[in-house]
Each structure stands twice: as C-alpha cells, then as structure tokens.
C-alpha cells in the first residue's frame, strides 16, 4: 500500500511537469485583457485604459496582428456594450495589412453594417440574432436574447441594436437588468440615461423623472 501511494504521487508530479508551459506574453496579455474587461464594465478603468495598454503590449510582442486586432475588437465591443463611440483607425490599419474575414465580419456587426456580415464567420452566439437585426425584428430578437447564455454577448448585442436600429424600452430594460445583475456600472449608467431620454422623447415625463432621480441616487 505504501509503495502504491508513493508511485501514485510520483505519477501526479510527473503528470504536472509534462505539460508545456504557457508563454509569458500570452498569459500576461490574456490576464490583462480579462482584467480590462471587468474594470471597463465596472467603471474602474480610467481614460488611459492601462490594462488594455498592457494587454496590447503583451500581445504585440508576439508579432501577431491577428491577435492584436482581436484585442482591439474586444475593446470596441465593450465600448459598444456601453453605448459609446470608438476610434477604429488602429483596427483598420491592421486589417489593411493583415485582412481577416472573421474579424472583419465582427467589426461590421459592431458598426451596424449587417448586410456586409457573413453569418458563418461570426461567433456562433450571434449567428441566430443577425437575421433579426437585418430585418429589424425586435420582438424576435428579444426572444433570442433570452436564449443567449453569455451576459456580455447579450449586452453587446443590445448595444449594437440601440446604437444602429430602432428600439423600444424593452431592449433597454433588458440591458439594464443584465448590467445590474453583473454589477457593470458603466453600461448601467449608459442604458439608464438612454431610457430616460427615450421616455422624454415619448412624452412620458414621470417615468423620465423617476429614471433621473434613480440615476442621481445611484451616482451619489
């Protein structure tokens, strides 16, 4: 029995040692990008976006423009989720040097150019949603949102819809619920502000006033 235990321990240690080590740059870039995502959504990333800069720096050390453009697209997607504009000049320069169909399709989706998007090239989670976006079918899109299991992807999809398509309060409320459930302050303020403006535009001043007061209390 004692021998058996000793052999098992050695086998475990050997098993751990046999796996190939992850490259430093890759690990750093991945971790910084994940930190950036969380900090951005929780409104802890300041204007200089230091974690994005670190992620970009680590990713660029591999001389891989495809990976770098993925990092940039992640940033653009987060800005879209928070209903913000983004500067796409860096991605376009990389796309010119190293064209990549999947990245281009994702970029077109973020920019609201739905007819230029090839469904097969998109991440699978958006594939069913794209036809509804092209048809501007919000009710069908809402049903699709309910079936999506990734909160960030749903928020990004909501951001694309609100930025580029006609919307009602249902999609904005859905985005608010998702942001609130995950504690993502930055998109939460953005969608609350959008909802307030929506009510003001539709002469629903009481609702707009309520949202305004809610915002003031939450931001206190």
């Amino acid at each position: 029995m004692r021998y058996f235990l000793l052999i098992t321990l050695i086998a475990f240690i050997c098993a751990c040692g046999s796996s190939q080590p992850i490259p430093q740059w890759k690990d750093t870039s991945f971790r910084q990008l994940e930190t950036y995502k969380v900090n951005f959504l929780t409104d802890q990333e300041d204007a200089t976006e230091p974690h994005f800069a670190k992620a970009k720096k680590a990713a660029s050390s591999n001389n891989n423009l495809l990976l770098l453009s993925t990092v940039y697209l992640t940033k653009y997607a987060l800005h879209t989720a928070a209903l913000e504009e983004f500067d796409d000049s860096d991605f376009l320069r990389m796309e010119k040097l190293h064209p990549h169909a999947a990245n281009r399709a994702y970029y077109n989706l973020l920019k609201g150019d739905f007819h230029a998007v090839e469904v097969k090239l998109l991440p699978p989670i958006y594939s069913k949603l794209l036809p509804f976006m092209a048809q501007k079918n919000l009710s069908a899109a809402n049903r699709e949102f309910a079936s999506m299991n990734d909160s960030l992807s749903v928020l990004i999809a909501c951001g694309i819809w609100v930025k580029h398509l006609p919307y009602d309060d249902s999609i904005v409320k859905l985005a608010i619920d998702i942001a609130a459930a995950n504690g993502w302050r930055r998109p939460l303020w953005a969608y609350l502000t959008t909802l307030q403006q929506y009510y003001l535009d539709h002469q629903e001043t009481t609702k707009a006033q309520n949202i305004k007061e809610r915002l003031e209390l939450l931001k206190k």
């Binding site: 992850i22 890759k26 690990d27 991945f30 993925t70 992640t74 997607a77």
Partner: peptide, 9 residues
C-alpha cells in the same frame, strides 16, 4: 491550466 484562448466576446 490550459492554454488561454483569445475569443471575441
């Protein structure tokens, strides 16, 4: 730990 994969969100 697995090799991290960069996926678009």
């Amino acid at each position: 730990k697995k090799d991290p994969e960069f996926k678009l969100p």
